[in-house]
Amino acid sequence: MIVDDHPVVRDGLRGMFDGVPDIVVVAEAADGHEALALARSERPDVVLMDLRMPGLDGVGAIERLRADHPRIRVIVLTTYDTDADVTRALAAGAAGYLLKDAPREELHQAVRTAAAGGQVLAASITSLLIGRLTPAPAATPSPRELEVLRLIARGAANKEVARALLISETTVKTHLKHVFAKLGVDNRAAAVVVAMERRLI
């Protein structure tokens, strides 16, 4: 079943499946509510679902379909590839996420894969998800920032650090602010602990 609020898109998608012997378009819906009604009567194996539609949007429709017809597999087919859109769709239970510029053969294979129980993701979506799961490399304080932190670790106050390093207290505070950001902490004690764990001081 094809679900999209633009008739020209539905026509184009239907045409992409014409003549494919193992795939039959059994229904078309213009919004999520119509998709739910047709799912009950037509029992599709796979649904190609747009995200942005009036009334019941794609994510809402996916949630309802997964609850009412858990065997139906839903592939999101959209022009939107933002982090929030991808996350919401997959969390709702989508079996795949493709962009509307996907080649005809990729769409065909995606439908087959989803029908067989597999997951399908556009390459750009896979990269996005991997990027979210890969932690950013930890930043290392500069030598001057570490000098400040070493003195802090010995119990020196900002004024004492400033005097020892011949800098102003404002500069000490700026260095500490940078240290906190780089070490992912929000106070002096935590900065010292993390720096010691990482053998920076």
Results as ranks from 00 to 15, higher is better:
2 I>M: 07
4 D>H: 10
7 P>M: 08
12 G>V: 03
13 L>E: 03
23 I>V: 14
29 A>L: 00
30 A>I: 12
30 A>T: 13
40 R>N: 03
40 R>M: 00
41 S>Q: 11
46 V>Q: 01
48 L>M: 14
53 M>L: 13
61 A>T: 04
63 E>S: 15
66 R>P: 06
68 D>C: 13
69 H>C: 12
72 I>Q: 08
75 I>R: 00
77 L>T: 01
80 Y>K: 02
84 A>R: 15
86 V>H: 00
90 L>A: 06
92 A>W: 11
98 L>E: 04
98 L>S: 02
99 L>C: 07
101 D>I: 14
113 T>D: 11
119 Q>W: 13
120 V>E: 02
125 I>A: 02
126 T>Y: 10
130 I>P: 10
133 L>D: 02
134 T>Y: 09
135 P>C: 09
135 P>Q: 09
137 P>G: 08
137 P>K: 06
140 T>R: 11
140 T>Q: 03
143 P>D: 00
143 P>C: 03
143 P>K: 04
143 P>E: 02
147 E>C: 08
148 V>I: 10
152 I>P: 00
156 A>I: 04
162 A>L: 12
164 A>H: 03
166 L>W: 06
170 T>E: 03
174 T>F: 06
174 T>R: 07
181 A>Q: 12
185 V>A: 01
189 A>H: 02
192 V>W: 03
193 V>M: 14
195 A>I: 08
